[in-house]
Design a protein around this nucleic acid. Structure first.
Lengths: 231, 231
DNA sequence: GCGTTTCCCTAACGGTCGCTACAGAAAAAA
DNA sequence: TTTTTTCTGTAGCGACCGTTAGGGAAACGC
């Protein structure tokens, strides 16, 4: 009665893949949209640009407070185009979170991977977070931390929570590697140090949202590194 | 056309005062509601009990995600009774925040006021926060920190933000007093220490929401105090 | 040119939101 | 008792939510 179709899930099988695994470069076809060759009319908007707008919207207002009509407005497309290109709101948000991670959150992984010691890695992580969280011209703080607190959709909340805990686990892995390498005492409480790093990141993100300036967050980062065992 | 009344603000001038400044004790009249003597039918529910339920609901789900229908359900009253007793959703939330502060957040002010030194005050503040934020049988974390992030009503978000910043300012006042008393070096960066304390509280609150146990938060609190100038 | 395929726009769906008119019930005051 | 005042339950308001038919319009392969 409500939906006389098969099961009313989704009738049009649009492309909807997060990112087509095309070869290197911007891909074939310089036209707008340009996702290789299709049979019919090509998309009239740039998917990546629209996704970036969605990232900024979700980043600033969070999952719930960002309405689909608000999304269509900032993305410059109609609701049916949004649903055809990204699926429903949740899958768009999922894609947004991934895009955020690669475009804005990559400094975390880089700091952990590129620095020679665990201590230097965490120091750089916190220092760069102070800058990232207060970068002018974009929302302050971290999307992963703030976009899905107090959410009526528990799965969304749980997904970001899992991401946060995974990030802390990554820090702990790096610290453990430092202990194994002999940089840190063998009895170092790696879990506590990692959790402390995560708590500092989360506190800094909240402070950034509450109006703290970059210098203040950097002072915070500097303070936080004092707890480490003397080198 | 929409509202043929005067301005449609509020027709019934119910009592709606947050807490009647009655004398000490539970007040006159042991009956349910018992707000002195009124002329008509007395309220059939206990206002304080209902408010406490609202505190827990807002605490757990936040301002936006707590619907009025959800509130009426947990409070055990109908929507008109809620509006007559507490005004609209926002003023109820305001009252909830105040009630939370006096019933669950008072440990902050006590720690700052009762300890002999600034360092001991902050240490106790963090240690007790670890316990408060993970207390079984009630929502984890802090309502002030989490109930109005990503809010479609900017005033509500701003109100809690102001409260957080005021709390940090209170910590800084205590630290400054410690400097003035000679407990701490005269060149102590009081603002940074206070902000660090606030960031730790916020990080601990988020960790509590993300599933951290009391012991883990206590380890965090212990770590955080290492940054203080040696006594 | 053709037909086909896909996209975009308008409009609307059912559901929930915060909020309230209205009438009836209940208790205090007379 | 009667009168007056207030509370409570039903039922519904308009607005917005996320989501989707359905009908042109546009660009492809041929």
């Amino acid at each position: 009665m409500v939906n006389s179709q098969t099961a009313g899930v989704n009738s049009q099988a649009a492309d909807r893949q997060p990112v087509p695994p095309s070869g290197a470069g911007p891909g074939p076809g310089a036209g707008p949209g340009g996702r290789g060759r299709g049979r019919g009319r090509p998309r009239s908007f740039d998917r990546e640009t629209a996704l970036e707008k969605a990232v900024l919207a979700f980043w600033e207002h969070g999952y719930e407070a960002t309405s689909v009509s608000g999304l269509t407005e900032v993305m410059g497309i109609g609701a049916p185009s949004l649903y055809a290109a990204f699926g429903d709101k949740r899958s768009l948000f999922e894609e947004v979170v991934n895009a955020y991670g690669t475009r804005y959150g990559s400094f975390c992984g880089r700091a952990l991977a590129e620095e020679p010691t665990a201590r230097a890695a965490v120091e750089r992580l916190l220092r760069e977070a102070a800058a990232e969280y207060t970068e002018p011209g974009r929302p302050h703080g971290c999307l992963i931390i703030h976009a899905a607190t107090n959410c009526t959709t528990p799965e969304v909340e749980a997904s970001l929570r899992a991401r946060r805990n995974a990030d802390i686990a990554a820090v702990e892995d790096r610290i453990r590697a430092g202990v194994a390498a002999g940089e840190l005492p063998a009895d170092t409480d790696t879990a506590a140090l990692a959790r402390h790093t995560g708590a500092m990141l989360q506190g800094m993100s909240q402070q950034a949202r509450d109006g703290a300036a970059r210098q203040e967050l950097e002072a915070l980062a500097e303070l936080a590194t004092r707890i480490w065992p003397r080198p």
